[in-house]
Design a protein around this nucleic acid. Sequence first.
DNA 1: CGTGCTTTTGAAAATCATCAAGTATAGTGG
DNA 2: CCACTATACTTGATGATTTTCAAAAGCACG
Lengths: 252, 252
Amino acid sequence: MATFRARPLVVETSQQLPDPCAHCDARPFSVCSAIEDRDLQRLASLAHPFAVEAGRSFIEEGDPAESFFNVTSGTAKLFKMLPDGRRQITGFAGMGHFLGLAVSSTYAFGAEAVEPMRICRFSRPKLRAMLEDFPALERRLLEAASNELVAAQEQMLLLGRKTARERLATFLLARADGQTLSPVGCAHVSRASIVRLPMTRTDIADYLGLTIETVSRTLTRLRGERLIDVPSPAEIVLRDMAALDSLASGLN
Amino acid sequence: MATFRARPLVVETSQQLPDPCAHCDARPFSVCSAIEDRDLQRLASLAHPFAVEAGRSFIEEGDPAESFFNVTSGTAKLFKMLPDGRRQITGFAGMGHFLGLAVSSTYAFGAEAVEPMRICRFSRPKLRAMLEDFPALERRLLEAASNELVAAQEQMLLLGRKTARERLATFLLARADGQTLSPVGCAHVSRASIVRLPMTRTDIADYLGLTIETVSRTLTRLRGERLIDVPSPAEIVLRDMAALDSLASGLN
DNA sequence: CGTGCTTTTGAAAATCATCAAGTATAGTGG
DNA sequence: CCACTATACTTGATGATTTTCAAAAGCACG
């Protein structure tokens, strides 16, 4: 069963640089790339950048959904909770990830930084107004939502039908793929062989629908089988990609 | 473990009525409601309605994604498979449901009718072209995708963290809510107390990440506890909504 | 009234969870 | 620099929910 610790506070840093969006590292990886350079001023006027320190939550499940968010750097975990504390992490949001899409007036999930983050906040009404003028932005949002839907279906397959070993293999490979960044619209190419895990074992367990003990045991077993190495708890070396691949896809 | 039976054929019925979209029962419940009456001719010229009989599949996972689909009547199951036959049903698509949203060039899931269906097929390039001219349609698609994303997160919580009893209670209540139709944009109000289950126990199991035996056992147990009645296998009476509700939300 | 299907029920087995220690690791203050 | 503490991670023993294997009971259909 999951542990729970809520720390809702957030640090707002309104440093008004000359043209922040133009120099944003995350733009090529985010929906903001749908906005032409000449229109960036308007985007920048809506964007409220702020920092979140590790462990701090910046979206509370059930709160009124007044903002959209765009992750500039760092990683967040997105999760849903049951009243008794059981938690399901529905995804990790990294650089370029867009958060807060919802028709409902309240957030359907919570979000908490797993490492220090920088985030751009947008007021929902203002960004909605901007959507009217920039159909390309709406198109990009639809693309992003479609991609997330595909990922969600993949995760349902994992949670509903895969074994613990298969879940870990799938997770590690997905992390390896996600670690090499590719701008929006570009197909993914390379796969890292060293995976960095900024999240705790508890987070991994809550993401894979397992317990922290099962995650730990499964990793040591994969290590014993020479499929991976675990030089430090937060760092995993993929030694046998082929074996991990067939494990992840349900063979073996 | 899931059984598998593929029957890819589909019956195309190109009956060209005078103004089919205007008289479509599904329009108020679907993205098509974003198109004004005066533009319906154009929509109708793109729509290829066809019938699918129960048990027939009309989307094959991995096939080139050449079409979008809009469900006019009946119910489909959407699923992903593992090579050894394990199956996860990611959702059921009823009247008004839009299918095929994907950036990828291939379908990420399969779809099969669980009862006789009528479906409108749209060629992807043609519908994309129409999106250019009707931003309201794109907006509606984004809304639909957002709603599905919320549902997917809810399902991840179910698959990753809920017990068999909780899963069944959640499923039955969701069915009860989904049975009373409400047009797009309207909040849901009523909840039926008799649930019709057009899908088999195997489908329910593959949707809830359980086995057919566990589904059956759990239903008989809920019956023994007077929470439900099962007059016939395809029909379930919800006798104690309050108890089911608290079960579904993880209390008890 | 068989035949073939889905569903239900039963007994045994297994994976994963729970309970409980023990081991690192990082940060703190003397 | 070295205890000392807090936290995260690992490992072990036990247990429980769910799966697997097996068979019986309903139900539709020819």
